[in-house]
Nucleic acid binder design. Structure first.
Lengths: 240, 240
DNA sequence: GCCACATTTCGGTCTGCACCGAACTATCCT
DNA sequence: AGGATAGTTCGGTGCAGACCGAAATGTGGC
């Protein structure tokens, strides 16, 4: 019983995430959007009353934030910190002993391409990271990434302009360990910008009731042409 | 109830961390060392029998790993992933609504300087990161850090040699958000190397029963001379 | 004003599990 | 061998909290 401060409230937070219904709620919010209590009840798999209680607890602890809009209440993750904690827990969960992990259709879609709070993850996210790395546009090591000079030019052409710092150092970005692939993909400013750009270009579309994203026809062409990534959909995702 | 895979086992892991006794156990292991079941029982604040049960659960889930040595069983965190998840949870806990966070003497020591798995955290960790940043030895942004060319030279002189990658890109390092200071400090390869070097130089020493580290007399002189960090101990930590 | 829908509050049930006392196994020491 | 120390297993107790039914509050549409 050394430090009360860390052990105590740390347990409280983990305990909140440690309930299946609440974990499902938080997972559903992992794409960064805000959902209503009703939608979250559906995701949680429990009744509306029970969900209400869960949402109150999560809000109290500031894991999620509310915004009232008419007769709906929209809930979202209160900060990227929460998303990062969730991702870290998923990584631990995925690296643990392989329980019978049911690989349903939704699961397959999730593994192919999904949003991870504000950036892309899954096979697509990793393929993009690999493509940028192998062409020398970004350098990744030790859980971090940096955009090279060459990369800055490439990204600007693609429609992304990242701010250099005052001394002209190349912009850095966070990497995020993918729980499904156990590989690093791009998060941080760059990851968010890439994700937004792909949505804007119509290369990917959100799917209903899931964080999985679908790759459109033009997306298939675009990813192949710009990043050299081919073979989407049900087939394995690879690079040229 | 969309994805069973993520929601399910994620909750199991979080639930394990979400018990006060187990959270204390994991916290005690956060300095990367291996402790015996008895020591962990003391940290957990519960009886040996109860602790044994907790340790079995944590081991089953691969959150911790055991090593038998005579009549002792040494437990340690099974991977840096677990440490990262813990750190992420602490960050969320610290950013939440300020409960009466008891600021005892141990707590003060923890805030001043402590190990965070394999690197330094607390005021000291941040002061080092600040010092290296302000002198242009490392660049930090977006949850990542990079060592500059100038920084490589400085570190080599200090006794740390980090491997450049094949293309001669400067080594990157992970940063870790400090739950007590809400600032970034250096983790990853660089953070670990710095920590080891400071121990080797005798600038810091481990304290009994805590992750807090004590700054030695020679450490005070060394940190001031090499990094320009002054005013340790009970006084506030600052930079010249 | 009235109905439909979204969400919360209340009350009560029931399960899960953290906890300890006591007894048991294993290892080291002399 | 005998005693001490480290750790586990077993059995029983008690509390916390997740869950739902029913009813209340709030909000928008007609």
């Amino acid at each position: 019983m050394t430090n009360i401060a860390s052990g105590n409230t740390l347990a409280a937070v983990a305990s909140l995430i440690g309930d299946v219904a609440r974990a499902n709620i938080l997972s559903a919010l992992m794409d960064g959007r805000a959902l209503t209590a009703g939608e979250l009840a559906w995701h949680a798999g429990v009744s509306a009353q029970t969900t209400s209680g869960h949402l109150a607890k999560l809000t109290d602890a500031s894991l999620i934030a509310v915004e009232k809009q008419g007769r709906h209440r929209y809930f979202r993750l209160s900060s990227p910190d929460v998303a990062q904690a969730m991702e870290a827990l998923m990584t631990v969960a995925a690296s643990g002993p392989t329980r019978h992990r049911p690989t349903g259709p939704t699961d397959t879609a999730m593994r192919t391409a999904r949003t991870c709070y504000d950036h892309l993850a899954g096979k697509l996210g990793i393929a993009i990271a690999d493509a940028l790395t192998s062409k020398g546009h970004v350098v990744i090591s030790d859980g971090a990434g940096a955009v090279t000079r060459k990369g800055s030019v490439f990204l600007r052409e693609f429609g992304i302009d990242l701010a250099n710092d005052t001394k002209g150092n190349r912009p850095l970005c966070r990497t995020c360990l993918d729980w499904s692939e156990r590989r690093a993909h791009l998060a941080g400013q760059l990851g968010a910008a890439l994700c937004i750009r792909c949505f804007d270009l119509g290369w990917i579309k959100r799917t209903k009731d899931s964080r999985a994203v679908a790759i459109t026809r033009s997306g298939e062409a675009g990813f192949a042409k710009t990043f050299g990534i081919k073979a989407f959909g049900n087939r394995a995702l690879g690079m040229s």
